[in-house]
């Protein structure tokens, strides 16, 4: 069984969906309720071995549907247009990171093909026909609008509010509350970051803090152990700045080596995450940007940890050290 999305042809352009073969259906296909579909690359791989399947036919329930387009791999994360009900999930929202649907059909064609099999949620009145969405007194359409300026947004808000008023007067709507969140507001509203992930983030930074304290202590020990060597360098003419710089370079090197070690550990950790049966398992990989960021963080943290020990080392009095040689 494959999940399906009934949508309008603008969906693909609006969300910049990449196509491997063919293209989206036309607006005319949409209004004529044509039996056409766009399928995901995963489904195409599964059914047609990744070959160009445009023009082939799919059997969806009792209907034959012609494939007009095959997507390239497209993996929005989270699956923003399907996110809903997150407020009631007690922070367990990892299911928002599933892959997109396998089949996309024109809005009304999809409603017709799957007629009687829809499940109504969040209704404010009596449902006349179970499984039938159109004209049901239920929430059943997610509407996405692209508005390019603040005036247009304000105008659209007024339009929506007026529409709700009008529908209430006609007796269709029970209340006239309207809201039009932006994409980011919608994601926040639905708690798309699972609470476990937030907890893990705190844990990661607490871990970093402990490692920093550890590193400061160890670097201090490392540098001061070489007090006599530093004394000799100072006696031979090295300035405090030179000692300070030497120590910092050492701390930085530790950071680089540690960062590379950490990178290997990260690969191991991500491999473990990918083996978990969670929706976002296939998203767990390290890209260049993230690798660069963590390496930079490792070096920066090491340098910060090295500041105090390096300062201490550069203050070593040469005379005292030379005396005890």
């Amino acid at each position: 069984m494959v999940p399906m999305l009934a949508t309008t042809s603008e969906f693909f352009a609006m969300f910049k969906v990449p196509f491997q073969y063919g293209s989206a259906w036309t607006a005319a296909d949409g209004s004529s309720r044509a039996r056409v579909a766009v399928i995901s690359s995963d489904l195409n791989d599964k059914l047609f071995g990744g070959a160009n399947s445009v023009g082939k036919t799919l059997r969806l329930k009792d209907s034959d549907v012609r494939i007009v387009g095959v997507m390239k791999r497209w993996r929005p994360s989270p699956l923003f247009y399907d996110v809903r009900g997150g407020r009631f999930a007690e922070g367990q929202t990892s299911s928002f990171y599933v892959k997109p649907e396998g089949v996309f059909m024109p809005f009304f064609s999809g409603l017709e093909v799957n007629e009687g099999n829809f499940w109504q949620f969040t209704c404010w009145g009596k449902v006349a026909t179970p499984g039938h969405l159109q004209d049901a007194p239920c929430v059943w359409v997610g509407l996405w609008v692209q508005l390019d300026s603040a005036t247009k947004v304000a105008d659209y808000r007024t339009f929506i509010a007026n529409y709700a008023q009008q529908q209430k007067l006609l007796g269709r709507f029970a209340n006239t509350d309207t809201r039009m969140p932006s994409l980011m507001q919608w994601l926040v509203f639905n708690h798309v970051v699972p609470s476990d992930v937030k907890l893990q983030t705190w844990l990661a930074f607490a871990f970093l803090a402990i490692c920093l304290f550890n590193m400061i202590g160890l670097l201090l020990a490392k540098f001061l152990r070489r007090s006599s060597e530093i004394g000799v360098r100072r006696a031979l003419g090295a300035s405090r700045g030179a000692i300070f710089a030497q120590c910092l370079v050492e701390a930085g090197m530790v950071g680089v080596v540690g960062g590379i070690g950490g990178w290997l550990l990260t690969l191991l950790g991500l491999w473990l995450v990918r083996r978990q049966p969670v929706e976002y398992a296939d998203l767990a990989h390290l890209d260049i940007g993230m690798f660069g960021l963590t390496l930079a963080l490792a070096v920066a943290a090491s340098l910060a940890a090295g500041l105090l020990p390096a300062l201490r080392a550069s203050r070593v009095a040469p005379a005292l050290q030379l005396k005890t040689l």
């Binding site: 304290f213 550890n214 202590g217 160890l218 020990a221 490392k222 001061l224 152990r225």
Partner: peptide, 8 residues
């Protein structure tokens, strides 16, 4: 960390 500092 304890091993390191104690050794020092």
């Amino acid at each position: 960390g304890i091993v390191g500092l104690a050794s020092f």
